[in-house]
Amino acid sequence: MTGKRITNTIRTLRFLAGEMTQAELGERVGVTRQTIAAIEQGKYSPSLETAFRIADIFGKPLDEVFGWEA
C-alpha cells in the first residue's frame, strides 16, 4: 500500500448533511475547523478514533468515508 494516499468523502457527506460546516463537524468530533479542512484536503490523516467519530456522525461505515486513492 506504500505510496498510495488516503482519500475521503467528507466534503460530499457534509453537503448531504445539509451543508454542515467544517466548524460544526469539528466541534462534534473534537477537533478544530482547520483540522477538518486539512483532512478534507488530504493534508492530514486523522487518528483511528477521529476517523470513526466522523463516520459515526454521518451514519456511515468507515470505508465509505475513508479509502485508498484509486
Binding site: 477537533v31 478544530t32 482547520q34 483540522t35 486523522p46 477521529t50
Partner: peptide
Amino acid sequence: RDAERPSDERDRE
C-alpha cells in the same frame, strides 16, 4: 475562541 481551545490531535502530531 481559537486561543482558548485546547490543542487537538493534529496540533499535537
